[in-house]
């Protein structure tokens, strides 16, 4: 069941523990919500094919452990990633402040070859909110994030549109393109932009 004709994109979810990375992914994948998900130890992996306009892309979702000490593993987790979704909890000021560190980690490893996306989750917790929408937007702008959204996995709010937005930022190639290194080398001549967004696959 090879899906080599599909464009595959690696999307990594980062952020402090308990901000709702797993629940965001689960909402997107299965449209369900549970208040207790098992802690992610190391990393977990899910994938989904997404139909968008008349194109199809394959999203590979990497769910990571949020505890700070797991950070030493982050470089190998975000290797080759196209999109880094950094999640904070709108009811936790601390998780918001620590965004900077996550973004720094991503930039150290991937430079400019990654789309940064900032998500303020748990926006249903209106009474406990500690981070305003404006603060979130400002931070996203400051870090040059291409996407900023507030979501609620619990209510399913903005989750679908988050993934749609992510998909739309992906470089859309013809169906036959870049499934592996041969694919990438075929693409090299097409234009300069493509090679800069893709060269992360070759080495590092």
């Amino acid at each position: 069941m090879s899906k080599s004709n599909l464009s595959k994109y690696k999307i990594v979810f980062l952020g402090e523990q308990n901000v709702g990375k797993t629940s965001l992914i689960t909402r997107f994948m299965y449209d369900t919500f549970d208040s207790t998900y098992a802690a992610t130890i190391g990393i977990d992996f899910l994938s989904k094919t997404m139909y968008l306009d008349d194109k199809t892309v394959r999203l590979q979702l990497w769910d990571t452990a949020g505890q700070e000490r797991f950070r030493s593993l982050i470089p190998s987790y975000i290797r080759d990633s196209h999109v880094a979704v950094i999640v904070y909890d709108v009811s936790s000021k601390k998780s918001f402040e620590l965004l900077d560190k996550w973004i720094e980690d991503v930039k150290i490893e991937r430079g400019e070859n990654v789309i940064i996306c900032i998500v303020g989750n748990k926006n249903d917790l209106t009474d406990e909110r500690q981070v305003s929408l404006q603060d979130g937007e400002a931070k996203a702008k400051a870090h040059g994030a291409k996407i900023f959204l507030e979501t609620s996995s619990k209510l399913g709010y903005n989750v679908k549109s988050l993934f749609k937005k992510i998909a739309k930022t992906l470089p859309e190639f013809e169906a036959a393109g870049k499934s592996g290194e041969e694919g990438a080398s075929e693409m090299i001549d097409i234009n300069v932009e493509n090679t800069t967004t893709q060269d992360g696959q070759c080495q590092c």
Partner: peptide, 9 residues
Amino acid sequence: IDLKMFLSQ
């Protein structure tokens, strides 16, 4: 495939 992905778990 990077073995570390599942080895860490």
